[in-house]
Computed example of a mutant assay.
Amino acid sequence: MTQDKHAAIFDGFLALVKAPYGDFSGIGKLSKELNDDSTLEQIVNFLRQNPQGERAFKERPLLGNIDLQQLHELPQNTLGYIYSDKMLKNNLKPVPVEKIEDNDFSYLAIHIGETHDIWHIVTGSDTDKPGEVQLQAFCVAQLHHDRLFISLLSKNLLKTALEEIEFAESIMDALTKGWTMGKKAKPLFGIQWNSLWEKPLEDIRLSLDIAV
């Protein structure tokens, strides 16, 4: 890695450290600097070792357009209801449908991005700081060589040390729980979540070996 590359990564990382919590505008830029083609190839090869991941890269399924109001009419114990309820209460919108370029790296980025909020729900990770740390640790365990999620964990640990050391225990508990959960759970990458909207969330967690 060149000196200029290192400098760009450190600049991106420091920008995230300085940004207020909830400002994720710099994540995309840092991801492009960190996850080069070699790193992405390692992630793809790791995910392809599982039949579910192999099938996902071949078929490249996406969530498509999501009607939160329609999902909110499902029974309250279903994935669709719980997901839509969380999104509506937090004034969040599903990630817009993107066109996949004809390569695995493009699908990897789009699929991870559009399913991020679903992973929050399925892993029981809240959207507060410990919840984000828990999900980031889960992602590190599930995505193997992803440099971005390791960097996001590092950012949150540094911000805790600098600004909120009183929350260190809850942050470390969340990191430990997310990592352990991610190692024990079946792979989440490549699941066709839009076929599971009507299924009870607890049944989904049980099938994936996720205990929250």
Rank of each mutant, 00 (worst) to 15 (best):
Q42S: 12
S84T: 11
K89A: 14
D4Y: 09
W197E: 03
P75S: 01
H116I: 08
A185W: 09
L152Q: 01
F10Q: 13
I9H: 00
G22V: 07
I27T: 13
S25G: 11
H72F: 14
R147H: 07
T115R: 00
Q52G: 13
V95S: 05
A174D: 03
K155I: 14
H72Y: 14
D209I: 06
V95Y: 07
F46L: 02
S170D: 14
G28F: 07
A174S: 10
R147D: 04
I9G: 00
Q49T: 14
E166D: 15
P75T: 03
G131V: 09
Q70G: 15
I118S: 00
Y107H: 02
G12F: 01
E73L: 15
Q142Y: 03
L152I: 12
E41T: 15
F57V: 13
D11N: 12
W119S: 05
T2W: 05
N45H: 08
V44L: 04
I210Y: 01
T39G: 01
D209G: 04
Y21K: 08
A137I: 08
Y81C: 04
G131M: 05
N35A: 03
A137T: 06
A19L: 11
Q76N: 13
D117A: 04
E41I: 05
I210K: 00
M172Q: 14
A211R: 12
L71S: 03
W193E: 02
L88A: 02
M181C: 10
V17T: 08
D126F: 07
T2P: 10
K129L: 15
S170N: 12
N156A: 08
K18L: 15
K129D: 11
A15C: 08
I112D: 05
L88T: 06
W119Q: 11
M172L: 15
A185Q: 09
E33K: 06
W197V: 08
L40R: 05
E33M: 10
E101M: 09
F10H: 12
I112R: 08
L162H: 04
G124F: 01
A8K: 14
F167M: 14
P200R: 00
D126H: 09
N45P: 04
N35P: 06
H6R: 14
D203I: 12
K93Y: 12
L175F: 10
N91D: 15
V17I: 15
E114K: 05
N35M: 07
S31I: 01
L196H: 03
E132F: 06
C139Y: 10
D67A: 10
E163K: 11
D146H: 10
S125I: 06
D23K: 06
A109S: 15
L143P: 06
E163G: 00
T176I: 06
L157M: 12
D85T: 07
